[in-house]
């Protein structure tokens, strides 16, 4: 087995509730001392290897987005270690970071800059982004007139020009038409040797014929792992059935 692109060991995270901390502790301390804490992640262990596509399935509130935010460095973990070998790019919503008053082309510069690209790289990639997005007719129109699916297309098209060792896609392909989603997934499969993928979703159909390994996240821990789609889905369905009506 090659070295992991991402290695997480015994990771935990809790949140204290705003309003429950002592005033000076709230304003000056980074430690959590409140009695009421929400713990979205408990003892998470995960390794992602080069060329792998991992699917993480979890019901709403299971800790999926918190995990993504910790891996990408937006949140800080309370305990545990994260080792990343290379560049990680996370996509939560393909439409985020866009400005509706700017044109599609202007938004390409803005969003790509958020992904760390410079002007020269964006200029070189511009035609390919427009081609992949299939938005040639609209690219110089304000983004305000785009549908949510069109914005998602533009978002993913920009992503195709970002060089990363690991992409984390958190429910980002939930919008847009089925054909375009398939195009995005095919792109990720074709490029998995360059960029491993963690695909996070609560819709298990998105993982069929796509993920090499599926992990089920429930109540902040990985409860189940399988390389077989059907076995993982059966377990996930039992979790869903346990939910109150």
């Amino acid at each position: 087995m090659n070295t992991p692109v991402l290695h997480i060991e015994a990771l935990s995270k809790s949140f204290s509730l705003l309003g429950e901390e002592h005033f000076f502790q709230l304003l000056f301390s980074t430690r959590k001392k409140t009695s009421t804490q929400i713990a979205p992640l408990k003892n998470i262990n995960l390794s992602v290897y080069k060329g792998e596509i991992i699917g993480i399935l979890g019901l709403n509130g299971s800790g999926k987005t918190t995990l993504t935010r910790i891996i990408t460095g937006i949140y800080e973990q309370d305990a545990g270690t994260i080792k990343i070998d290379g560049k990680v790019v996370a996509i939560f919503a393909l439409r985020s970071g866009f400005n509706p008053l700017l044109t599609g082309r202007e938004n390409i510069y803005l969003k790509a800059a958020l992904f760390g690209l410079n002007r020269q790289e964006i200029d070189q990639a511009m035609e390919e982004i427009i081609r992949f997005s299939e938005l040639q007719e609209f690219i110089d129109k304000p983004l305000g007139i785009y549908s949510s699916g069109m914005k998602a297309k533009l978002g993913f098209a920009i992503l195709t020009q970002v060089k990363a060792d690991l992409f984390i896609i958190d429910e980002a392909l939930a919008v847009g038409d089925k054909l375009f989603r398939q195009k995005c997934m095919n792109y990720l499969i074709d490029h998995k040797q360059q960029s491993s993928v963690i695909f996070i979703t609560h819709v298990h159909e998105h993982l069929q014929h796509f993920a090499d390994r599926i992990l089920i996240l429930n109540n902040g821990t990985f409860e189940f792992e399988s390389t077989d789609y059907q076995t993982a889905i059966d377990y996930y369905d039992t979790l869903k059935n346990k939910l109150p009506e």
Partner: peptide
């Protein structure tokens, strides 16, 4: 807030 919570920069 939207950009901060969804992009690492």
């Amino acid at each position: 807030s939207g950009i901060i919570l969804e992009n690492r920069f």
